[in-house]
Structure formats: structure tokens, C-alpha cells
Simulated scan of single mutants.
Amino acid sequence: MKHYLKTYIFKTLSILPDSLGSKIYHQLQNVSENKNIEAKLKSTENTLSAFGNIFANLKVDLQNKSAIEIGSGWLPISPYILLHKYKLKEIYSFDINKHYQKINIEKFNSLFSKTYKNDIAVSRNNSYSLPENVHYFPSQNIINANIPKVDIVFSRFVLEHVTPEDIFKMHEKFKQSLNKGSYIIHFISPSDHRAFSDQSLSLQEFLKYSSKEWDKIQTRFDYHNRLRLPQYLDIFKSLDLEIVYISHDNPGPNSPQEQKFRNLKLHQDFSKYSEKELTAGSINIVLKI
């Protein structure tokens, strides 16, 4: 879909009364998110393979660890894989929205059981058909929630959709609430997400706008903070969180994406960053409290 069509849809929804706009958005996204679940399962498994490899290199045994997931999304894909493949003990999943639907999770339970030859033991007292060791906390901002003491906090492609102020507050809460030695791992996609469905755009396309110009384009339905790698690091360092692992990629020399970036006229707000800092994508970072 061309980026301006998606922007038009989100802009239309944003001028409706909040409850109506959110309802229509939820219905549209529900249809989209529940298409091709097999591909989403595979994609998440690939991300969590990196999760497992990172902790293996850090010599951290994941078995029987407990974790908080930031951003539940539409299905419990990450919790199921972490419990099944890496033998975590408990997953507490927090989301500012309420996207889980029992009928969709029941279908996913069947798919997961068939794919991994692992029967999902659903808790009788769970209204979402989740296992006993997956705890869902919808419609909760984790900054204001009572969170359990866990060994690991993780997010998958969530942090780029959180305001810088809330990223700071979130990690401040983790530092205050969790035991020293706990880990926080984020998989961050800092690129312009419109470019994923519209190949005419650069992955850094949104860096040509001022903050005011970008705020006129995005809405609450597709918010992106546009933070560059050094800005994330500055937030974490300001809280004295130890950075124990970091990786990212950049466009290859003379690749189409590098050419698109070089053709961009960046806004002066981003002029202090190097090309590598501006184009750093697929950021994986582990913090230690």
C-alpha cells in the first residue's frame, strides 16, 4: 500500500471520536494481524533465536527464568516460544491496548501445538484460553502498573512506538522495581515503517521532517518516535544502566537503500549524527540493572 493511502486512513480515524476511531482501527488491524499467522510465527521465532544466542553468549541460563513482555500485540507468540523453546517459567505480558481475543488465541493454540508438537495446557480460569504461566495485563501502562520481580524484561519492535519520556520513565521503574542483576533486552526497529509496504521510500524517509511536520503526518495509531541509536543509548546511560550487548545493521555499500538515503535531504535536527548512526537498523540491545 502506498504510504499516503495508509496515512489518509489513519488521519481519517484520528478525527473521529476516540472510541469510534479506536474501534474501527482495532477491527481493521485484527483482520490484518490474523492473516498468515504461520509467517508471523516464523518471524518471531527468528527474532527469539537471536534472543537465545545473545543470552547464551552472555552465559545466562534462561531455564526457569521469569520475564515481563512489553507490548503483548495480538497473539502470545513470543511467550509461547520462550516457554517452549527456552524453558522460561513465567511470562507477564503488559500492553497499553487490549488486543487479545479468545477465538484468535484458540486458533493460535491449535497452530502452535501442531507446529511444535507441544500441547497447550490452557488454564480453566483464564478467559483468554492462555496457559497458567502466561499472564496477560491489557489496558495497562507498565509505568503505572504493579510489576512482579522478574529476571528478564523484553520487547520486540515496541520501543520505537513509545515516547522518549515514557522510555525513560519505564526504565526508571525497572531500575527501582527489579533486583540488581536483572536483564532488559530490546529488539528495536528504528526505520520508517511506511517503507516496509512502500518501496519508493527510504528506511530513513521520516528524517527529512521537523518534529512539527512529522507530528502532522503521524497519528496515535502509527506513532513513531524517530529516535536514532545514540539517543536510545543516552536514555539508558542517563539511568546508569549497564549496556552488556549491542548490535545493529546498516545498508550495504552501493545498495538501493544506501542510495535512497544519500538522496534524502535530512532535517537539520539530525545533522549532528553520522551516517552510520542515522541508518543503524535492527538494533538489539541488552541492559543490566
Rank of each mutant, 00 (worst) to 15 (best):
E242R: 03
P230C: 11
S238M: 02
R226F: 08
P251W: 01
D234Y: 15
H248M: 04
L229G: 07
D222C: 10
D234N: 12
H224N: 13
Y223S: 07
H248D: 07
Q231V: 10
F221T: 00
I243R: 02
L229A: 04
R228E: 09
Q218F: 12
Y245P: 00
D215W: 13
D215K: 15
V244S: 04
E242I: 07
P230S: 12
F236C: 05
I235Y: 02
L233C: 04
Q218G: 05
K216W: 11
K237E: 14
P251F: 04
N250V: 15
D222I: 09
L233I: 14
P251Y: 05
P230V: 13
I235D: 01
N225W: 03
D222P: 02
F236A: 03
L227G: 00
I243C: 07
N225T: 01
E242V: 09
F236D: 09
R228D: 01
R226Y: 06
N250W: 08
L241C: 03
H224P: 00
Y223C: 10
D240G: 11
L241R: 03
I246Q: 11
Y232F: 14
S238A: 08
Q231E: 15
Y232A: 01
R228F: 02
L239N: 05
D215V: 10
K216F: 13
I217A: 04
K216M: 14
F221Q: 02
S247L: 00
K216D: 15
K237P: 07
F221K: 00
W214S: 04
L239M: 01
R228H: 02
R226L: 03
Y223F: 15
L239G: 04
P251N: 05
P230E: 09
D240Q: 08
N250S: 11
L233M: 11
D234L: 10
K237L: 10
F221M: 01
I235S: 07
D234T: 15
W214I: 12
E213D: 14
I217S: 02
I246Y: 03
S247W: 10
R226N: 12
I246D: 00
P230M: 08
I217N: 06
R220V: 08
L241T: 02
R226M: 09
D222R: 07
N250C: 11
F236Q: 01
F221L: 02
R220S: 14
D215S: 15
R228S: 06
K237Y: 13
N225I: 03
L227Q: 06
D249F: 04
D240S: 12
H248S: 10
K216T: 15
D215Q: 15
P251R: 00
D234C: 06
